[in-house]
Design a protein around this nucleic acid. Structure first.
Length: 573
RNA sequence: CGGGGCGUAGCGCAGCCCGGUAGCGCGCCUGCUUUGGGAGCAGGAUGUCGGAGGUUCAAAUCCUCUCGCCCCGACCA
């Protein structure tokens, strides 16, 4: 392609609207343009990258036997009412109605639509297993769209759905998809890690997220360097503490602690470490009901774990009014001692904690040398806190580490959640009807492109991994002579004839402009043709990522490039 | 939705406190010179100052309302 005739509007300056590096570079390299918050146009260069990623995804989906179809973007409310998600999905679901006032939504995901298709068409176990997928634009009215393609309201997703007759088959399908995902992200040239994850709004039994490791990632993961264990902090289990509880307990004491509403204030005042303090978090779990959760002062409560334990899907801290009403203690000084009318949960970390500090249920009063069982009764123990760096791994017991990641893929075992509600059943060999066992599997295509940039850039711009690069090579005629023009045109033709995707910068620009644009766009190989080189009968080939340069005779360039491109495509295959 | 910030030329910004001519850099157009890391000179075009109302002789500037966007927190591919 000729740059002079291409719609690749690069920008010299950083746009004010973008903060995150991938967003900035996509705008500056002329890959995308914003239409509204979280809604983007893909310009030719950006679309080429998107298509490359889609191609890899298609190849790997097809390889594991998934079949591509295309479901509608618009779907009727009735399907969503069947599963309860019309209400449950909340404001994120883009709702609209037609001229007859019938309700529809723009698909944020397609479990309902595909399950409806299945129940209409599939009757027999002989038709199973069945895995269907599509690559399509999705709509989610995100609370806060941000970072360009990283979190859009409209975005391109590959979503796949599997149907099996039994648990074993479903597990097998899940494993196949898991490996296909590993294959896909390896092929895109990304440094990624699959982690155990929470199932969120999609629901279901188990799931893994595929995280591209990047410091700018929105997700925090913990992993065990000694074993394969890795999980989203939302999900990560914390092993039971090992050390024994000391037997000699100090007597309970009441102390005055003026104006110490936070754990931090209290630690400063009493000159103790936060690990000696226990905070009492009060959650509203019913109209007039509060549940207390005890967490060590230096730990973070994990509301997802608490929700799961309580079987709720919505958990909020109790209002100060409700607290006053039910336990008659001031917020900030609440503690478990002497409270009888609410359920008390405690994080496992408290099992080995003795002589700790809690709120005294009076303004400006705390209790010290408090001990569970002796001073109050815990109704339920559990893992209620967020994992953090240094926590023991549930597999090896070794201290875990944390890392930031970008979630680019997610695989779920759904079980029969959707098939039961929607009557998606098949007949087995005995003529018995069973709900199909489902799985669903998503990949954010645009987000994968953004993650690739987060992981592959320097101060000058992007350096694409070959398999998803918009072009394999770029020709930069850096001086204006006829000899350079002729040599560039000839090489351009040779490379195109060899099916190398090549961009010819035939603009009437100075060398510096071409160098800078090429560095920003991130084509893996830059072929630099100038009078200086031609005088010595050489053309320079530069590796964008490493900066390594080699000088070749003009007649050698095409075969060298072809070989190098093939090599890089194959290595990452 | 809560908190912080921003809307002025295609892009990046100044001007606003203290009301009176809309400005700078880059880009764009024309010409000449230039051409291996964002060229030089000369000339030129470009604005409902986000929108609506108000105050005033006079509003980018002051007041009210509104819309949009960005960043930080609760959601997710």
């Amino acid at each position: 392609m000729r740059l002079s005739q291409s719609f690749i509007p690069t920008m010299r300056q950083d746009p004010g609207e973008a903060e995150v590096i991938s967003h900035r570079l996509m705008l500056r390299a002329g890959m995308i343009r914003k239409v509204a918050a979280g809604i983007y146009s893909y310009l030719p260069l950006g679309l080429r990258v998107i298509r490359k990623i889609e191609t890899i995804v298609r190849e790997e989906m097809n390889r594991v036997g998934a079949q591509e179809l295309l479901l509608p973007i618009l779907s009727p409310a009735e399907l969503w009412e069947e599963t309860g998600r019309w209400d449950f999905y909340g404001k994120e679901l883009v709702r609209l109605h037609d001229r007859h006032e019938r309700n529809f939504c723009l698909g944020p995901t397609h479990e309902e639509v595909v399950t409806d298709l299945f129940r209409r068409e599939v009757r027999s176990y002989r038709q199973l297993p069945l895995t269907l997928y599509q690559i399509q634009t999705k709509f989610r009215d995100e609370i806060r769209p941000r970072f360009g393609l990283m979190r859009g309201r409209e975005f391109i997703m590959k979503d796949a759905y599997s149907f099996d007759q039994d648990e074993a088959g479903a597990q097998q399908n899940y494993q196949r998809m898991y490996h296909a995902y590993c294959q896909i992200f390896s092929r895109t040239g990304l440094n990624f890690r699959p982690v155990e994850a929470d199932t969120g709004l999609i629901g279901g039994i188990s799931s893994h997220e595929f995280m591209v490791l990047a410091n700018t990632g929105e997700e925090l993961i913990v992993f065990d360097p000694e074993s394969s264990y890795a999980a989203n902090v939302e999900r990560a289990e914390v092993a039971l503490p090992q050390e024994k509880k000391s037997e000699e307990l100090q007597p309970l004491e009441k102390v005055s602690t003026p104006n110490t509403k936070s754990v931090e204030d209290l630690c400063d005042f009493l000159k103790v470490d936060a690990s000696r303090v226990v905070k009492t978090l009060l959650y509203q779990t019913g109209d007039n009901e509060i549940t207390a959760v005890l967490i060590r002062g230096d730990h973070q409560a994990n509301e997802i774990k608490i929700q799961r334990f309580l079987g709720l899907h919505d958990l909020t801290l109790a209002s100060p009014e409700l607290v006053e009403k039910i336990i008659a203690a001031p917020v900030g000084f609440v503690g478990p001692v002497g409270i009888s009318n609410i359920r008390l949960l405690a994080d496992n970390a408290l099992r080995t904690l003795t002589d700790f500090i809690v709120g005294g249920n009076q303004t400006d009063v705390h209790l010290i040398n408090v001990n569970s069982t002796r001073d109050f009764v815990i109704h339920d123990w559990g893992d209620f806190r967020q994992a953090q760096a240094g926590d023991p791994s549930p597999k090896s017991g070794q201290p875990m580490q944390t890392a930031r990641g970008i979630e680019v893929g997610h695989v779920f075992m759904l079980g029969t959640k959707y098939s039961e509600k929607m009557g998606a059943t098949y007949l087995d060999a005995e003529g018995q009807s069973h709900p199909a066992i489902m799985g669903c599997y998503g990949i954010g295509i645009g987000r994968t492109a953004a993650a690739a940039i987060e992981q592959n850039h320097d101060e000058k711009g992007i350096y694409w991994p070959m398999p998803i690069a918009p072009f394999h090579a770029q020709i930069l005629p850096v001086t204006a002579s006829e000899a350079v023009r002729v040599a560039s045109e000839q090489l351009y033709k040779e490379l195109e004839d060899q099916h190398i995707e090549v961009l010819l910068d035939d603009r009437n620009e100075r060398g510096g402009v071409k160098f800078n644009d090429a560095d920003m766009i991130g084509t893996p190989y830059h072929i630099i043709i100038g009078d200086k080189g031609l005088a010595k009968n050489t053309i320079e080939v530069k590796d964008r990522k490493t900066g390594e340069k080699i000088h070749l005779a003009p007649s050698e360039v095409t075969s060298w490039i072809k070989h190098a491109v093939m090599q890089k495509l194959r290595v990452q295959n």
